[in-house]
Design a protein around this nucleic acid. Sequence first.
DNA 1: ATCATTGCAAATACTTTGCAGCGTT
DNA 2: AACGCTGCAAAGTATTTGCAATGAT
Lengths: 146, 146
Amino acid sequence: MTVPDQRLEQMIAAMQRAGRRLTPQRLAVLRLLAQGPGHPSVEQLHAAVAAQFPSTSLATTYKTLAMLKELGQVLELAFADGGCRYDGRRPYPHPHVICTRCGAIEDPEYSSMERLYQEMTEKSGFAISHHRLDFFGLCPRCRGEG
Amino acid sequence: MTVPDQRLEQMIAAMQRAGRRLTPQRLAVLRLLAQGPGHPSVEQLHAAVAAQFPSTSLATTYKTLAMLKELGQVLELAFADGGCRYDGRRPYPHPHVICTRCGAIEDPEYSSMERLYQEMTEKSGFAISHHRLDFFGLCPRCRGEG
DNA sequence: ATCATTGCAAATACTTTGCAGCGTT
DNA sequence: AACGCTGCAAAGTATTTGCAATGAT
């Protein structure tokens, strides 16, 4: 069983636990999030789902994402321009690197999260529970293109 | 001259450099950003400006903030719920700690930014230029209230 | 006096919601 | 069979824009 399939199983299990129904439209969204490329937008997801089920509405895509968010099965990355991207593979907070030219989003490994939480906790006195870390710049490909 | 006054002077100087006019409405916005409390929302800024110039429109507040953003004189913090908060004191990227109960935003000192950039650069290969670091949790006051 | 800025209102873009009918469980 | 889900369209919400009048330089 591949890793993406594990994610799909996890998502389905979470839905069953919560008593949510697994419709074909929803299954298509789950598959895309678990197995599809990187960090899709709502429109991209909707277009891909509509390719399989042409009648699928944008509203249903939004509703499915809202449900998955509620179940903690997808990480929503809202950006300043109003757009959102979704990460179904790693639905927990983690750092992102975002290309300011082509929009690519990557998930680099990061080893010092504990240290970071510790420093923020010490300096602020907050009980920190989660985070959002975004780094912006040019990806290797776009760097090369001057 | 106090530190907030320095910020006000910097903002005004940046506007003059760019050939922008300093209207009473704009001055009121600048003052609030440079001297007022923490991280106001557009509505809060508009309400405060309207207290001095009742006819001031929300559109003008938006336009003024857009101009300041363009001049690099204010940091816009867009959140997932669609709301924005503005930081006129420290208009450059820096970490924030946000209380998930009362919405308070603080700017803790942070010492390891270079290290962080270095690790992200190494792991991703990106040429990183700026960032957005948000930590969420309960502030000391809200922790106490159970 | 010039022309950027203002304020109103309409437009935009995105997301949410109400509801009748459908289809999974 | 029950009732959660879908799809349509309408309603929100937050921000932007067009334009005539205003006012800072």
